[in-house]
Amino acid sequence: MNSGFGSPALDAASRLMTPFMLMFGAYVVVHGHDSPGGGFQGGVIIAACLILVRLVRGRAAGWVMPPETAVVLLCTGAGIFAGVGLLGPIFGGHFLDYSALPLTLAPAEVRAAGSLAVEIGVALAVTGVLELIFDVLVEARDDA
């Protein structure tokens, strides 16, 4: 899929929607504590935005994320999750025990901050995996 669908109407619509989709995705990620949402949902919205641009404009879009970048994103997300989990034992708690983090906040807020970091990691991983799967499946040619 190098060309995309690319009609002018689709192009205009996707240009109009893209910034709002990205912003809504980021909102859903960081607001997951207080409203329906979280890392999975926000990551899916961001990935849907990237895939929309890719579908409409094809490879001509300046937005094409190469599979290598998607893999980096994916592993960064999983690494953030595991890293935040490992901060627990480093500061004298248990694995994935966010209350051990040395932040000067109320105990519940410390745990909320830890799980926010984890949610951001999850969002990166979900964005990366959806983008990677889409890219890999689209690029596959049936050259049997």
Binding site: G32, H33, D34, G38, R111, S115
Partner: peptide, 12 residues
């Protein structure tokens, strides 16, 4: 957990 969204509290 400080999360009013209980699903996020359980999940994360």
């Amino acid at each position: 957990t400080g999360a009013t969204n209980l699903v996020t509290g359980v999940l994360a």
